[in-house]
């Protein structure tokens, strides 16, 4: 067990080190997120205070598109120079490779959210004060399921030139239930002033579990020809 965790951390540590060295992904993803916020914010009118439940929807869009870029980049690292063959030939389970990538993707997405959210709050007066922790909890849970599916498909899609659009179009429809569920919960929180219920979180956790288990199982089968 400890060995497994150590291997996962080794893989994630390697991904993050490469990211720290190249600064390719995070800069790109954060700028994309900010651009989305600016475009949508200006579209809604920069002068007015944007209410919580619209703000959350805009942030969601930024996280989703940024996330897809993260999945793509972290997998592209392995496609270069046959590094993936090195992982496959190593004495580790495919599941560890999946978990390592998932963790890297989650960390990158959290970093994205940590930068983009304050920017949005400052620039456009996004008002999340009604339920800040509810927002964090719901977003984090949704991101987890989203990243599971994204990691799976990033592994399946090869780094062909069409990958950019392709990955997004594969991942978004599959993740619609997550988007709908979290949106409904966030509308309840911010527009209707409801408290965050155990039921809503329970559904999200259940969805995450389904996405995680299915992605993990399928991932085992996709890395070989």
């Amino acid at each position: 067990m400890i060995r497994t965790v150590r291997k996962i951390l080794l893989l994630t540590g390697k991904d993050l080190r490469i990211e720290a060295r190249t600064r390719q992904t995070l800069g790109l993803v954060v700028m994309l997120g900010i651009l989305i916020i600016v475009v949508l914010g200006l579209g809604l009118g920069a002068e007015q205070k944007i209410p919580g439940f619209i703000a959350t929807a805009i942030l969601w869009v930024a996280y989703l598109f940024g996330g897809v870029l993260c999945f793509e980049k972290t997998m592209a690292v392995e496609r270069h120079d046959g590094a993936l063959a090195g992982l496959l030939a190593a004495p580790i389970d495919r599941g560890i490779i999946f978990a390592g990538k998932l963790l890297s993707n989650l960390i990158l997405m959290l970093a994205l959210a940590a930068v983009v959210t304050p920017v949005a709050i400052v620039l456009f007066n996004f008002d999340l004060s009604a339920a800040p922790w509810g927002f964090v909890a719901v977003t984090a849970l949704s991101m987890f399921g989203f990243a599971s599916v994204g990691t799976l498909f990033a592994g399946a899609v090869s780094s062909s030139r069409l990958q950019g659009g392709l990955l997004a179009i594969l991942v978004f429809p599959i993740c619609l239930p997550l988007v709908i569920t979290s949106t409904q919960i966030l509308i309840g929180l911010f527009r209707d002033g409801e408290a965050l219920g155990a039921q809503g979180l329970g559904i999200l956790v259940a969805f995450d579990a389904v996405y995680l288990i299915v992605s993990w199982l399928v991932f085992e089968r996709i890395l070989e020809p």
């Binding site: 799976l152 498909f153 899609v157 392709l166 594969l170 599959i174 619609l176 299915v214 399928v218 996709i222």
Partner: peptide, 14 residues
Amino acid sequence: AMVCAVYAVAAFLD
């Protein structure tokens, strides 16, 4: 075939 198989499985379970 690989990508579509993964998608078909995920979509059905979705």
